[in-house]
Design a protein around this nucleic acid. Structure first.
Length: 438
RNA sequence: GGCCCUAUCGUCUAACGGUUAGGACAGCGGGUUUUCAAUCCGUCAAUCUGGGUUCGAUUCCCAGUAGGGUCACCA
C-alpha cells in the first residue's frame, strides 16, 4: 500500500521504554519540520516490539510531549499492531531462502533451545546517501547472519522497521546518528523483501555538559519536565531546533510556523552539539516577550500562590524571570513577602553609607510630609517618583533619600525601585511603614 | 579494538578559496536620574596539529590527534 504520490512522509519512531529527553525530541522536531516544510505527512509510530520494556505510561508521555509542543502527527500506530504483516514477510523470506530458522540455545542461560530467525547475509558493501553525512559505505560482512526475529511472532527492530516504513509509505527517515550503523542492515532487508530504499538523514546526537551523549542517567530531563518548569512550548521548539541547526541568517527567535518555513535539512550540523540550558532560558524569555500583556498576566498570576495573586506585581515579576516556574521560586524564596506584610526593620540598615542618623530621620519625615500632600488617587508610581526625586536631587547623595525609603518599605537592600513599591503598597501603608522606620 | 562520522570563541554557530573570521548565549566593563532586575552600549574570546594543492586556504586533499556513534535473541 505504498503511496503513489511523491509526497514526503517522515516518521518519529520512539520506543516507549522511558521518558524521552530533548535529544530524542529533536529528531522528532526535525522530522516534523521537514515534512511540514515540504507539504508532507508526519507519522508517529510507537516501536513497542520489546514487550518487556515497553510501557503504556511512556507511550502516553511521548504523545503528551508531542501535543504540548504542537507537533501534530497525521498518522499514529504501534509497531505491535503489525505482527501479522511482519510474520507474513518473515515466512516469505524463509521460503525464498533469504532468511532461515536457527535452533539455538537461549541466551538467558536457561539451556532452552529456541527457534530464532536469522537473515541470510549476502556479505556485500552497502552504500547509501545520507542527507547530512553524504555518501556512506559500509561492509556488512562482519554483521554475520544477524537475528531479525526471536521467533515468527516476535520480530526484532531492524526487521520490523523495514516492513513498517514500507507499509506506511515512509519516504524520508530522519533519526539519530546512533542508527547510522543500522542502516546497512535495513537496506539489506529492504532488498530482500522488495521494499524501496529510503532517503536517510542521520542527525548527530545532542551531548550534555559533560560532552557525553545526553541521557536520563546524567540528568537529561523529559520534555514534560520543561513544561512543568513553566517553559513555553514554542520556546522549547525554537531552542531545541537550534541545537545543531540554524537558518543561515542572524534571526534566532522563531515561532512554530516560522520554523516550518525556514527549516532545511542541509543546514543541520554534521557534528554533535552540547546542549546549553542557559540559552534555552534566553529563548524562553524572548518568547515570553512575544506574548500579549493579558497572557503574561494570566500566567504569572497562575504561578503565584493564591494569597499573592495581585496583578500589580506582574511588571516587577516579569522582568525578573525567564520562565513561569521562576515566579513560583521567587514567591517561595520570600522575595515578594514585603508586599503583603510589613517587614521587620533594622534601623541601622536605614542608613545610607555614612549619612548621619539625624539626616536620614529628617529625610524620612520630609518624605512623609510630601506623601501626605498627595491625594490618595494620585499616589501613582509617576507622582511618587517625581516627589521623591525632587527631594533626592537636592540631597547631598540621592541614596540618602532613596535608600531609606526602599529599605523601610521592603526591608531589603536589593529590591525593585521604591517608587513602584510605594505605588503598589498604596498611600496609607507606605506612610505607615515610613513612620515605623522613624 | 573493527567499522562509520566529525573537528571555528567556554557553548550554539556564520563565512561562492580572497572578510579586520560575523552573530547569539554566558563572562567582563560602562550608561541608563540609589540597589537588584530589565534595557542600551562596549569588551574579552576561535579556525586541533602537520603536510600538501593554490598567487591565496577556516574552506579542497592526505596523515596524525581528539571527540562522537556503533558493534544484542534493545530500539
Amino acid at each position: 500500500m505504498a503511496e503513489e504520490s511523491n509526497k514526503i512522509v517522515t516518521r518519529f519512531a520512539p520506543s516507549p521504554t522511558g521518558l524521552l529527553h530533548l535529544g530524542t525530541y529533536r529528531t522528532a522536531i526535525f522530522s516534523y519540520l521537514y515534512a511540514k516544510k515540504n507539504g508532507g505527512t508526519f507519522v508517529l509510530r510507537i516501536e513497542d516490539t520489546d514487550k518487556e520494556r515497553s510501557k503504556k505510561e511512556y507511550e502516553d508521555n511521548i504523545i503528551e510531549s508531542l501535543n504540548w509542543m504542537d507537533l501534530k502527527y497525521d498518522k499514529f500506530y504501534r509497531q505491535s499492531e503489525h505482527v501479522e504483516e511482519h510474520k507474513k514477510h518473515l515466512e516469505k523470506m524463509i521460503t525464498e531462502g533469504k532468511a532461515y530458522i536457527s535452533k539455538e540455545e537461549a541466551k538467558d542461560g536457561s539451556g532452552v533451545i529456541k527457534e530464532i530467525v536469522r537473515f541470510k547475509n549476502p556479505n556485500i558493501d552497502v552504500t547509501f546517501n545520507d542527507d547530512i553525512k553524504g555518501s556512506v559505505t559500509m561492509n556488512t560482512t562482519d554483521l554475520g547472519d544477524f537475528v531479525i526475529a526471536k521467533n515468527l511472532n516476535e520480530p526484532l527492530y531492524n526487521f520490523a522497521v523495514v516492513v513498517d516504513d514500507w507499509n506506511a509509505g515512509i519516504t524520508h527517515v530522519i533519526r539519530g546518528e546512533d542508527h547510522t550503523s543500522n542502516t546497512p542492515r535495513q537496506i539489506l532487508i529492504q532488498r530482500a523483501i522488495g521494499a524501496p530504499t529510503l532517503s536517510y538523514a542521520h542527525i548527530p546526537l545532542v551531548l550534555g555538559g559533560d560532552k557525553l551523549k545526553l541521557s536520563k542517567r546524567r540528568g537529561a530531563l523529559p520534555i514534560t519536565e520543561y513544561r512543568n518548569q513553566g517553559f513555553l512550548p514554542e520556546a522549547i521548539l525554537n531552542g531545541v531546533a537550534f541545537v545543531g541547526w540554524n537558518p543561515g541568517t542572524e534571526k534566532e527567535i522563531f515561532t512554530h510556523d516560522e520554523l516550518v518555513e525556514a527549516f532545511d535539512l542541509s543546514r543541520v550540523q554534521k557534528s554533535p552539539a552540547i546542549f546549553n540550558e542557559e540559552k534555552l532560558n534566553w529563548f524562553n524569555k524572548e518568547h515570553i516577550k512575544l506574548l500579549s500583556k493579558e497572557e503574561i498576566e494570566k500566567n504569572i498570576l497562575e504561578w503565584l500562590p493564591e494569597n499573592m495573586q495581585n496583578a500589580k506585581l506582574v511588571p516587577i515579576i516579569l522582568e525578573r524571570i525567564s520562565k513561569w516556574g521562576d515566579v513560583k521560586d521567587m514567591a517561595e524564596r520570600g522575595e515578594l513577602d514585603f508586599f503583603f506584610n510589613a517587614p521587620m526593620i533594622d534601623k541601622e540598615k536605614l542608613i545610607f553609607k555614612d549619612t548621619p542618623k539625624e539626616k536620614i530621620k529628617s529625610n524620612i519625615e520630609n518624605i512623609i510630609k510630601k506623601f501626605e500632600e498627595i491625594a490618595e488617587n494620585d499616589f501613582t508610581e509617576e507622582n511618587i517618583k517625581s516627589v521623591l526625586m525632587e527631594l533626592a536631587n537636592v540631597a547631598e547623595k540621592r541614596g540618602e533619600v532613596l535608600h531609606p525609603v526602599r529599605y523601610a518599605l521592603s526591608g531589603l537592600d536589593k529590591s525593585p525601585d521604591p517608587f513602584i513599591i510605594a505605588s503598589i503598597l498604596g498611600k496609607n501603608e507606605t506612610i505607615s511603614r515610613l513612620q515605623k522606620a522613624l
